[in-house]
Each structure stands twice: as C-alpha cells, then as structure tokens.
C-alpha cells in the first residue's frame, strides 16, 4: 500500500538538501562546486517555502520562493563573473590555492 506524500516528507527533503549543501560548501575545494552547493541550500529554502505555502493556503510563500530563485540567479551570475576574472589572473578555481590574503 502506498503512503501519501505529506508536508513532512517535503520538509525532510528540504532539510536533507540544506545539509548536503552545507557539507558541500564546507568540504569542496572547487569554487564552482561551492557555488552549486549554495544553490542547493537556496533550493532547500524554496521547497520549505512552497510546502508552507501549500499548508497555509497562503500565496506569500510562493512569492518569496520566486524572489529566492531570482536572487539565486543574480548571485550565480555575479559569482561566475568574479570567478572568471579570478581565473584570468590566477588560472585556478581551487579555493585552497587562492591564498594571497592571509594573516
């Protein structure tokens, strides 16, 4: 017998995505992958928002999710732009090789 998918399932999925994204940001060396992990975190947020929006029958959560998607796109665009500028000067996208600024 199939169990229906409830809001709890969505919230668990969202928490899992948040965890995977956080681990990705903290452990990966490649800055492109770090940017992708940040996208995962923002998608976890979107799932949360849309789930609550459905739960309350309130449209604000979906509006919030659309704003989060927009911001994610802008952040990635700026991030990749800066990354390209960095790559032109340094020829690397690995976080631990970018180490000019240190105490």
């Amino acid at each position: 017998m199939l169990h229906p998918i409830t809001n709890a399932h969505f919230l668990v999925l969202s928490a899992a995505l948040l965890l995977i994204g956080t681990i990705g940001v903290l452990t990966r060396r490649n800055m492109v992958v770090i940017l992708m992990s940040i996208e995962l975190i923002l998608n976890a947020v979107n799932i949360n928002l849309v789930t609550f929006s459905r739960h309350f029958g309130d449209v604000h959560g979906q509006i919030f999710a659309i704003f989060v998607i927009t911001v994610a796109a802008a952040e990635t665009a700026v991030g990749l732009g800066i990354l390209i500028a960095l790559f032109r000067n340094r020829e690397t996208v690995l976080a631990d090789e970018v180490d000019l600024l240190k105490w």
């Binding site: 770090i34 940040i38 975190i41 949360n48 991030g79 800066i82 990354l83 000067n89 976080a95």
Partner: peptide, 20 residues
Amino acid sequence: NEAAMKYLLLGAFSSGLMVY
C-alpha cells in the same frame, strides 16, 4: 579578485542559511 570571491562565497552561504 580574491577578496571578492571569498566575500561572495561566504556571503552567499551565510545568506542562504539566513533565508532558510
């Protein structure tokens, strides 16, 4: 470049957690 990249990665990460 390096300063901007570090600021962006950490900033985007933290604001991701915040919006969660």
